[in-house]
Nucleic acid binder design. Structure first.
Lengths: 141, 141
DNA sequence: TCTTGACTTGGACTGTGTCCATCGTAGGAT
DNA sequence: ATCCTACGATGGACACAGTCCAAGTCAAGA
């Protein structure tokens, strides 16, 4: 993800200050931000940036495949810049922390053709839920 | 799910007309309804039923484990009365149809302890995405 | 039948996201 | 270096999903 700006420029993106800021934020290791969190961080660097621009830009990045939308609950969508290698998500049911995980094997092999109900299946997203180390057994926090 | 009313009564639920109607709707084979769809159907039988009651009742049914919340996109949560046997979901990326599927094996075994990042993992939800038979290759619908 | 606390109601409110008319500007053309 | 213009940004209204609350209603036990 580290040459995101360069890749976007090659795709013909007009390089505005707003897009640069948003790309920088996603390029950091701040993963799984909501659109609102991206907006808050962006506004620290560019105070007048609008929510609409953040939504537009995130939407475009998703279409380009540069970031992935993650929906782990009914709340705000989260934006995951780690599209380099496939992964799934581990969510703490207590504090909401989200981490990337890499299960063994390919989940699609677990769904043979005769169980696909005639669908042409393209992807599988897995959300594992449980307690993170901080919230686990014995925690009173 | 067919003795839902009976099970609820045994759990000490006060049996109101509203709760009866909602339980009946979920008891049918109308799976994966949104809260709003439940409200619409309920209002056909009980015109004055309020949205708040539908939300309250669905929430209670989720806590009791009688229905499961399913979030496949960022839109409205869906309520799945099939909690009898574990299953996952297959979503058509074109028309939005949702079907229950039963992959082979247990997805938790694909995440060995050394990949759990210290989490105590309890559940795994898989969302498979693709095209349903009606929307598949060759379809112009 | 009476009583009471659990349940329901409707409306206000919040959070998340979209839309749109208008304004501004990046970047190619000159 | 300057001009043009189409693409992008803005902000405010709007839509949708869900929550909250004070007041009224009623199921079910006494």
């Amino acid at each position: 993800m580290s040459d995101l700006l360069e890749r976007l420029r090659r795709r013909g993106w007009r390089m505005t200050a707003q897009r640069r800021v948003i790309a920088q934020i996603l390029d950091g290791d701040h993963v799984h931000l909501t659109a609102d969190e991206v907006h808050t961080r962006a506004a620290r660097l560019l105070p007048e940036i609008s929510r609409a621009t953040v939504y537009n830009t995130l939407g475009e990045l998703v279409v380009l495949g540069e970031v992935a939308e993650v929906t782990v609950d009914g709340r705000a969508k989260r934006y995951d810049p780690n599209t380099r290698r496939p992964h799934h998500h581990l969510v703490c049911t207590r504090c909401g922390t989200i981490r990337d995980v890499h299960p063994t094997g390919d989940p699609l092999t677990r769904l043979p053709a005769d169980r696909r109900l005639g669908f042409t299946v393209a992807t599988a997203d897995i959300v594992y839920r449980g307690l993170c180390p901080d919230c686990g057994v014995g925690s009173t926090a």
